[in-house]
């Protein structure tokens, strides 16, 4: 039985897809059989971030509507064994997803994989609710910024009420906070919410903290999930996040200003 994890946020542009791609890749690098599903029907992006956009033939909607088999639609990752991608449809509208269809797909995948990651669309509409409905755990991606924190709280409300676990009265969906685009310099200056602030307001466990990093854009430019870049702060922070997801205790890093060495101060180096 696979563990189903939804990567969600409410607000758009906070790093859901980047995080879903990095965490799925990180899990596979740790030997877990992982599939990551793009639920953003109509505006798919996961394939680009994973670097497999030219190998998309069939998608989630094709599978649900019986136009293709699951095996035909799954894309095997080029870089990591054990990692598969199920892309979203680019052309259909979001009503093409049905709860019964999604349930069937997840059930089938559940037998073959250890982890199923659902990359949710932004918003709190049908698509986002379907992405979270069958989840066992949720990673709530939040930027240190007022609208993102408020939307994350809305999502927490939905996770507590509009999921299968909630409706059946089972153990609630396990909620994890993932803070992205964190800038310790601005926090220190008093212009950015601290991670303690966000944790206090949302009152859920912190699974990871990803610093604002040049490596993220570099990674998406190349279609290589940033967790592969183990020289970058963001790459390492995602690897830490994956370790915590696997139950390991890993100390937090990149949440404080990194002291620059004399050389990098003189030459302005320190590309991360």
């Amino acid at each position: 039985m696979a563990k189903i994890i939804v990567v969600t946020s409410g607000k758009g542009g906070v790093g859901k897809t980047t995080s879903a791609a990095a965490i799925a890749t990180g899990l596979a690098l740790r030997g877990k059989k992982t599939v990551v599903i793009d639920f953003d029907v109509g505006l798919r992006n996961l394939d680009l971030i994973m670097g497999c956009e030219r190998r998309v033939v069939y998608d989630l909607v094709n599978v649900i509507q019986g136009e293709a088999g699951l095996a035909q639609a799954l894309i095997r990752d080029k870089r990591v064994d054990n990692l598969h991608i199920l892309p979203a449809s680019q052309t259909r509208d979001k009503d093409a997803l049905t709860p019964e269809g999604v349930e069937k797909v997840l059930e089938t995948l559940s037998g073959d994989f250890d982890y199923i990651l659902c990359d949710s669309p932004a918003g709190i509409e049908r698509g986002a609710q379907l992405a979270m409905y069958f989840a066992d755990e949720a990673i709530v991606v939040t930027n240190p910024e007022v609208s993102s924190v408020r939307d994350s709280d809305r999502i927490l409300g939905l996770l507590a009420a509009k999921t299968r676990r909630a409706e059946r009265g089972e153990d609630p969906v396990k909620e994890h906070l993932l803070i992205t685009r964190y800038n310790p310099e601005r926090v220190d200056y008093g212009d950015m919410l601290t991670l303690e602030d966000i944790r206090e307001i949302l009152a859920i466990d912190l699974i990871g903290l990803i610093p604002e990093s040049e490596a993220v854009l570099r990674a998406s430019n190349q279609g290589i999930p940033v967790v592969h870049d183990q020289k970058s702060d963001a790459g390492l922070a995602y690897a830490d996040t994956v370790s915590r997801l696997l139950g390991e205790e890993v100390p937090l890093r990149f949440h404080e200003i990194q002291k620059k060495g004399l050389l990098s101060r003189m030459f302005g180096g320190g590309r991360r």
């Binding site: 007022v146 408020r150 950015m192």
Partner: peptide, 19 residues
């Protein structure tokens, strides 16, 4: 007043209301 503490106060009110 630091803008982050303004943000925190506003969020605490909003989130309490939402909850």
């Amino acid at each position: 007043k630091k803008s982050a503490s303004v943000a925190k106060e506003r969020l605490q009110i909003i989130v309490a209301h939402q909850r």
